[in-house]
Design a binder for these strands. Structure first.
Lengths: 245, 245
DNA sequence: CAGTGGTCTAGACCACACT
DNA sequence: GTGTGGTCTAGACCACTGC
């Protein structure tokens, strides 16, 4: 019987408690994204449970994409700094042909004050400082996506246009390496809207043309919301893809 | 060592083989949707493996929503004939307030011939007979969704407007009870489009108004595509919701 | 080779549902 | 109480990785 645990915890399966402990270590940045965590045997010893119990805890964390298991190597903290994980949150695919890489162009990065809606989404107070980033993503010269990104200024203080421009790779990888913030999950709300005048210029589409409005709220560890992203997708030759299970 | 299995199967983990066997029983309709399957102990005996191995197989099938475990009761075949599973594939939610029930009105149900696109999606030949169903779904008198549903006529032969009208409940539940066809998963492609004249009447929106076009391809057991659904969602006061993990 | 995760087993006990 | 799935353990062996 593992004393350390039974002492403090109210009843729940042992592996759930282990899961919570590992989660706490992730949240406390004890192991950074991409890093190797201790082996199942070591964790079992540390928590005074059997390997099978640790295994079940890790299984669930791996199923939630928080950990990645690699046979023969070990278990690693999930990261957005890897090939296969790059487009985990981007569901836009071309109607015909392969999934292509989009070229990013950052347009602006300013400090603004949060309105009530955005403050509420990010669990801040209205008027709190935010950083607003605008970018366009294109393929073969044709702009496809226009995005507005909103971030709490406290966490992303040093972010500026230079840093964004010099970064090659996904924005979520930048958040990880420069702001110790790993995105765990996101919620998206999708609508069809008509494009307005200012967006018309960016996306090279006539005013009133239908575009997909994708509002995303992204969360780090502990269900903490840290990014709002409002994007317009030109779905003339591509579409938003979703798998239902 | 389980002889029955090692004899025929090429190498793969035992629990994967068990999984395949259970899947085969599902596909062969040995156990119908909603039915209780044999207990883990019985299956373990039947396949000459340990309970733990059957358990792991069932775990994965439950994770894919093919089976449902109920502690103290047993394991059941997943079905669309149940409260919590009703809206498994409908991601439309109101911007404000609770998820509300939509009222279905079926407009038509005719036999047509498949064009090349639809034939290809359903893995049929161009010209093969399809059944085309049209319906509108409304809330508080306001039409929200217009759908066109395409089904292979062979599998859904007896389907007609009367059957649809008299059925209360999800269409996928009708497929199960009347056509022994359980929908396992689906793929959706989403675009923003302008509404045309005919749809304008159904959705009570001006011509050219942006709507969400949702094209769904739904599959039964064995990855067999059996339904195409092309829907238009009025996203003025509701949105398509998606969770990214 | 040693160390990692992956599979499989057997047995004990717990939590829950029905009767 | 009996039977179901759910948890936990301990130990054996396999498959993969890298030294």
């Amino acid at each position: 019987m593992p004393e350390v645990l039974t002492a403090s915890a109210s009843f729940s399966p042992l592996y759930q408690q282990i899961k919570a402990l590992i989660l706490a270590s992730l949240q406390a940045a004890e192991w950074l994204p991409g890093a190797l965590i201790p082996s199942e045997m070591e964790l079992a010893a540390r928590f005074s449970v059997s390997q099978g119990t640790v295994r079940k805890a890790i299984d669930e964390l791996a199923a939630q994409n928080l950990l990645v298991r690699r046979q023969g190597k070990g278990t690693f903290v999930a990261t957005h700094n890897e090939e296969d994980r790059q487009y985990r949150f981007l569901h836009l695919v071309p109607d015909e042909g392969q999934k292509f890489p989009l070229i990013s162009q950052f347009l602006a990065c300013k400090k603004i004050k949060a309105n009530t809606t955005d403050a509420h989404l990010l669990k801040l107070k209205a008027g709190d400082a935010l950083i607003k980033v605008n970018r366009v993503q294109s393929f073969a010269g044709k702009p496809i996506v226009f995005e507005e990104i909103l971030l709490p200024a406290t966490r992303f203080k040093e972010l500026d246009l230079t840093m964004l421009t010099e970064w090659s790779g996904p924005v979520y990888a930048l958040y990880e390496t420069r702001f110790a913030t790993h995105m765990v999950r996101a919620e998206e709300k999708i609508k069809a809207t008509a494009i307005d005048e200012s967006l018309s210029t960016y996306l090279h589409l006539p005013v009133g043309h239908p575009v997909l409005l994708v509002e995303r709220l992204a969360f780090t560890y502990g269900n903490k919301p840290v990014e709002i992203r409002r994007a317009r997708y030109d779905t003339t030759q591509q579409h938003y893809q979703n798998m239902l299970n």
